[in-house]
């Protein structure tokens, strides 16, 4: 049945994209918290934070983008959970289709929905004074890294989507992911943090990703951060994908 994989994935992707077009509130609720964070930090706390030569909103944006993704993938879990609960997942699985296309369609939908949310947040940041002189290649690299951050988080989201008992349970996994950027270099430089917190902040995935995106946007050399960031993204992606597939196989035909 794998010969139908691409066709089936496309049909199912179109289906979930219709869901997003018909309930754009999922994009609004995804972007509202990162935008609120951005307003709060720029206009309330920002005056007290020394971020260097660039405006604080420019300093802040990479972290805000990661928060947007963390909040966006909770809808991936939610959409998958809805399909599980109302039986349409089983209907698809009992049909002569490439069975894994059902999951891949959700993953691709997550990618599209998150990219739309990211564009919305960047537009708000532009209105708040974000400026970047980065060229096309640097922007492409930023988009590439963000996609590499969306994919592992999406496969993590698949796990509660398949196993949750309630809609709240399906999306609760994303709360720690949303908070992770707070203890990173996203809002303040890590050197201002106290010892153990700084050690954590310096060595967690978000810091290297935030630093890489920030360097690309402010036209600084990215240094070794980019390799650390890529290693985290690919490593988490591999682990999350493997774990999600085990969960999926256990759910279907166990």
């Amino acid at each position: 049945m794998t010969r139908h994989f691409l066709g089936d994935s496309t049909v199912l992707l179109r289906r979930s994209l219709r869901h997003i077009m018909r309930s754009p509130d999922t994009i609004i609720t995804t972007t509202i918290m990162p935008i609120a964070f951005m307003l709060l930090f720029v206009y309330v706390f920002g005056g007290a934070i020394k971020s260097g030569s660039h405006s604080y909103v420019t300093y802040l944006l990479p972290g805000i983008l990661l928060i947007t993704i963390a909040s966006g993938v909770s809808y991936t879990a939610f959409r998958l959970f809805q399909d599980m609960r109302n039986g349409i997942f089983e209907r698809f699985q009992s049909m002569p289709i490439a069975r894994s296309a059902v999951l891949w369609a959700h993953v691709l939908t997550s990618l599209v929905a998150n990219l739309i949310s990211l564009v919305v947040v960047v537009l708000v940041a532009l209105a708040m004074g974000f400026r970047s002189g980065a060229g096309v290649l640097a922007w492409l690299a930023v988009v590439g890294i963000l996609i590499l951050f969306i994919l592992p988080l999406t496969w993590i989201a698949v796990i509660p989507g398949l196993t949750a008992k309630s809609a709240d349970g399906a999306s609760a996994f994303s709360y720690p992911l949303i908070l992770l950027p707070l203890i990173s270099s996203a809002f303040v430089p890590t050197r201002t943090m106290s010892g153990p917190v700084r050690a954590f902040a310096d060595n967690q995935p978000v810091t290297s990703i935030v630093n890489t995106v920030r360097d690309l946007l402010t036209q600084q050399p990215v240094g070794s951060d980019i390799w650390v960031a890529l290693a985290w993204c690919v490593g988490i992606l591999a682990a999350a994908y493997a774990f999600a597939m085990v969960t999926y196989r256990r759910k279907i035909a166990a």
Binding site: R15, H19, N86, G87, I88, E90, R91, S94, M95
Partner: peptide, 13 residues
């Protein structure tokens, strides 16, 4: 074809 215990239809479509 399987028609499950609850009508497995897509509500948004």
């Amino acid at each position: 074809s399987l028609t499950g215990q609850f009508a497995a239809v897509d509500e948004i479509l």
